[in-house]
Design a protein around this nucleic acid. Structure first.
Length: 577
DNA sequence: ACGAAGTTGCGTCT
DNA sequence: AGACGCAACTTCGT
């Protein structure tokens, strides 16, 4: 049923006044309870978005172009979301007012100067929003401003689930499902027009800025994400996905092919859910509608609906766990003596581990800001418990910066999952950086696509710029030298095993044109499993309360053991030789 | 206390 | 393609 907007009867004696909707996530018109509420009984509506310099100021010291919090792909994606939102608001007789500055300062000033009586914004469950919103709400209540802050980013209210579970978030998916039940349906109101924007006073009205205007103009990124931001794009993408009825009904997440990139094996709706361009409740309802029209469909956890529930599962766990984004002081996180080998971290980050499958995925991350979830698993396992034994927080930082869909709860949750720090504990199951990719893509098409030329790392490109100026012909040679694409498929996953004649013919000498593997997977994974076993034992013995000193002690012991092992390996090799 | 189950491992066998 | 051993984790429910 559609109700004309200004006929809503409000049992309030007050005359219509000014409302402000503050967009943060939830960059959409459809199923937007904060917007729906903001337009009721309202004379003027001020729709605002605040560009926070703490988040967006360019940072030249970061390892990739962008701000200190985000790479360029996600900033670009967000700006596209804002442009689309502005255009949608425009069609309804309004517009998006964009401001620059500290959110609290900007917001409190605007509320005062515009005589706002009602402030609406989507509830934020992340610590960042919890802190921010506490300040905003206390200001509003002192100033006599009504605040409406509905939970509409997730299917459920995490607080409800935690309460139902006796105050703690459920730690397994099945127990979460049992508690969750069915989500409430999305709003059905269709907005046909919006109250006019009031007099904005002396403010200079910014349009949504471009990447260049934000000061990232001289970026060295060579290829941008193929995914465009915005609600319109989200709904288009959703419609396309839902059109494949059978595909939706038969979707099984673990069976997806991580090497598909021209036509990804998943919906790629995650970035739109992250920014709230797509309502999770609307998506959920659309999926239920498809299920009703087919005979048989897959079920959680592997189905598409199951994926939405995973999202809520992690949001709930994150909301109910202090220090969710770190190992120390995190009740649910195993204390593990990860090592601190920066050169290995950088090799992983820049896609030069010497394992083409791993490196190609990391290049896809740099260029596209998106990879298939199994590809994420593969590289996350490799960095942490599988091969390099580097802290999951370091990998988390890289993903958080570069993924266009990076989402605080989900990203941290998955890093704990993959590193066997929480949620998942079967550390003996290690992804092979060789055979895992091979089983989907035996010819190495994915590798050949993402590793044909030099990677778009800042350092490399800075060096190259100089080369271009001075010796342009040499540059061309050095680029072609890095080709891995001609490596025969027998060796594409393990190029170091190719005979020198093959390497020469492929124009790719291992150790010179493409790196040698940074670790031997067979040895490294065995050592990692052993370390995990000892770390688990320590956590068990200390009943989860592992102190700094305990961890230091175990780290020393493990390093000694490893030293002994490698010594005996060398001796064995000598004997064999 | 105990058993069952757990979104997505690998290698080897048939 | 599917089953099994590998070696064994935790959480949840009884």
């Amino acid at each position: 049923m559609q109700v004309p907007l200004f006929l809503h009867h409000q049992p309030t004696p007050m005359p219509p006044s000014n409302s402000l909707i503050w967009f943060r996530k939830g960059l959409r018109i459809h199923d937007n309870p904060a917007l729906d509420h903001a337009i009721k009984h309202t004379k003027h509506l001020f729709p605002i978005f605040i560009l926070d310099p703490h988040y967006l100021a360019p940072d030249l010291t970061a390892f990739s172009p962008g701000s200190n919090r985000s790479g360029l792909n996600r900033i670009q994606f967000m700006l596209e979301c804002l442009v689309d939102l502005d255009s949608s608001l425009g069609k309804l007789g309004s517009r998006l007012l964009v401001f620059n500055g500290d959110p609290i300062q900007v917001l409190t000033r605007l509320l005062k100067e515009w005589d706002v009586k009602k402030l609406c914004f989507e509830y934020g469950t992340e610590p960042y929003y919890q802190d921010l919103d506490k300040q905003v709400k206390s200001f509003a209540s002192a100033a006599g401003i009504d605040v409406f802050s509905p939970v509409s980013h997730t299917l459920f209210n995490p607080a409800d689930i935690i309460q139902k579970n006796g105050g703690r978030p459920p730690m397994s998916y099945q127990s979460f499902i049992k508690l969750a039940g069915n989500p409430s349906p999305p709003l059905t109101t269709t907005i046909s027009s919006l109250p006019p924007v009031g007099n904005v006073g002396d403010y200079e009205m910014l349009r949504v800025p471009t990447i260049k205007e934000l000061g990232y103009g001289d970026n060295t990124q060579e290829e941008f994400s193929p995914f465009r931001g915005g609600e319109s794009e989200a709904l288009k993408r959703l419609k396309e996905a839902l059109g494949g009825k059978e595909w939706v009904a038969n979707f099984e997440k673990p069976k997806g092919d991580p090497s598909m990139f021209l036509k990804p094996a998943t919906t790629v709706l995650s970035p739109y859910l992250k920014f709230g361009c797509l309502s999770s409740r609307y998506f959920y309802q659309c999926l239920q509608d498809v299920y009703k029209r087919v005979k048989k469909h897959t079920l959680p956890p592997v189905s598409l609906v199951g994926q939405l529930l995973w999202r809520d599962f992690f949001y709930t766990a994150a909301f109910g766990t202090s220090n969710f984004d770190q190992m120390k002081g995190n009740r649910i996180c195993k204390q593990i003596p990860w090592n601190d080998k920066d050169e290995l971290l950088v090799a992983w980050r820049e896609g030069r581990t010497g394992y083409p499958w791993i490196d190609a995925i990391m290049v896809q991350l740099q260029k596209w800001g998106w990879m298939h979830h199994l590809a994420r698993h593969s590289v996350a396992c490799f960095l942490t418990r599988g091969d390099l034994f580097i802290h999951w927080e370091k990998g988390r930082d890289v993903f958080e910066r570069l993924l266009i869909d990076s989402d605080w709860a989900i990203n941290n949750g998955n890093w704990m999952w993959l590193s066997c720090s929480s949620f998942f504990y079967q550390y003996n199951r290690v992804y092979s950086p060789i055979s895992f990719g091979k089983k989907y893509d035996p010819n190495g098409k994915f590798i050949r696509h993402f590793l044909p030329v030099l990677k778009a790392t800042t350092a490399t490109f800075q060096n190259l710029d100089i080369v271009i100026v001075l010796y342009s012909s040499i540059m061309i040679i050095s680029v072609t030298k890095y080709q891995l694409s001609d490596m025969p498929k027998e060796y594409i996953y393990e190029p170091w095993t190719a005979p020198l004649t093959v390497q020469t013919k492929a124009n790719c000498i291992i150790g010179k044109d493409y790196p040698k593997p940074v670790v031997d997977h067979n040895i490294a994974s065995k050592e990692c499993k052993k370390k995990m076993g000892e770390a688990y034992a320590l956590n068990r013995a200390n009943n989860g309360l592992v102190g700094e000193e305990d961890l230091k002690g175990l780290r020393r012991k493990l390093e000694d053991d490893q030293h002994q092992d490698s010594k005996s390996r060398t001796q064995k090799q000598k004997l064999v030789g």
